[in-house]
Design a protein around this nucleic acid. Structure first.
Lengths: 206, 206
DNA sequence: GCTAGTTTGTGAATGAATTCACAAGCCTCG
DNA sequence: CGAGGCTTGTGAATTCATTCACAAACTAGC
């Protein structure tokens, strides 16, 4: 399969969100122009993005909202339930655990981990907080596909190495640091500090 | 000034983080090769990125860690203190308020807002939570440069419009929705849902 | 069933970002 | 002080992403 750009996948995600909104309003078709306007891009971009995966529209008419929604969910891999573990039960871990979007999109949080003995045994939104030392044996016993890292920057790389060795192939990292992983492990980093600095750069060079 | 790509600014942010780490370890010079390795890019990319802003290295030797740190801080606009308001005192707002990186980098949280009467008057990491209705008058009385939006998706656009009208030119948005702002207002969105879908896409199309 | 009016899908053209490759400059050592 | 060994800074080449532009395909109205 031809390599798909990250930017394309991110836009698909945006389109899907709008399609779901449109579907909720009972609209049955939508044009690339409409999707582009709401998503802050161009209609040609929308059509090009979709064209990588097939032909979903009807010329002269546009796209069927339910059909395109279903196709995008499929392309993005949202058709199945994904099991997620949260590593780090601090404020960020807690905010994530209660985030509704997780469940809505089919993500199931199966476990949370922390190194602090005071937190172990307590629960995070109904999920028991377990001891970090159990990480490997737990994953072996009850696999998960995705690990969310909400740990201090200093230990993020080490924790990534551990979850990768345990067989997890997808990691969402919240530590503001560039992590290095084997080629078969996908890491996405949500780096607030970087975004903030993008803002101060813009403010400074306005 | 020539337009600088977002990707370049994000990398500068990464380089700065490493320089600070290196500085802490007492290292005095660093090569583009070393920065590239740690930042997951190439040495040519590092040099090109820096070249947009000037000439910071010494041929044959590399870059002075303290000098390049200072230059990058300057370029990124981290030389001054920025005042930040947090709109939305839910879990995400709370996680942000306690985030150490804010203060470390010179960001000062001056106020927090919420629409829920139960939260108003309480404090978030030492910052009083105020009523959303005061937003405009507060900003007029005590300006801030940056607004962080940690509000429900449904009201994010409306809140953005309000802070933009109040004169704020930089917004960090945590609602998983594409926002539309006037050209002179910079909006950066941290969209966890999108990153997660990037992961499931990778898992599905591996 | 024909015409007018839309909107898609996609090669080709353009534009942007990254990588290459090498001259120029600096340091060290003998 | 000159030679050897590095590393930067940067045009040129390449790769990647976006935009253009238009034929093909569909609907609706008559």
């Amino acid at each position: 399969m031809k390599r798909i750009a990250d930017s394309t996948v991110r836009r698909l995600s945006i389109y899907l969100r709008f399609l779901e909104e449109f579907g909720g309003k009972g609209l049955s078709t939508v044009s690339s122009e409409e999707l582009a306007r709401r998503g802050g891009t161009t209609s040609a971009q929308v059509r090009k993005d979709l064209s990588f995966f097939g032909s979903f529209g009807k010329r002269g008419l546009g796209y069927s909202v339910p059909e395109l929604s279903a196709s995008l969910r499929d392309i993005l891999g949202l058709g199945k339930q994904w099991r997620v573990i949260i590593v780090g039960a601090g404020k960020i871990g807690a905010a994530l655990a209660q985030y509704r979007g997780f469940r809505q999109r089919g993500f199931l949080i199966t476990a949370a981990y922390d190194a602090n003995p005071e937190k172990i045994g307590r629960t995070l939104e109904g999920v028991a907080i377990r001891d970090m030392t159990q990480l490997e044996s737990d994953i072996a016993a009850e696999p998960a596909e995705i690990a969310v890292l909400a740990v201090p920057t200093e230990v993020a790389q080490e924790v990534l190495d551990r979850v990768a060795r345990a067989g997890i192939k997808a990691v969402l990292n919240f530590a503001p640091v560039q992590l290095h992983a084997p080629a078969d492990v996908t890491v996405k980093t949500v780096n607030m500090a970087m975004e903030l600095e993008g803002l101060t750069f813009a403010l400074t060079n306005a």
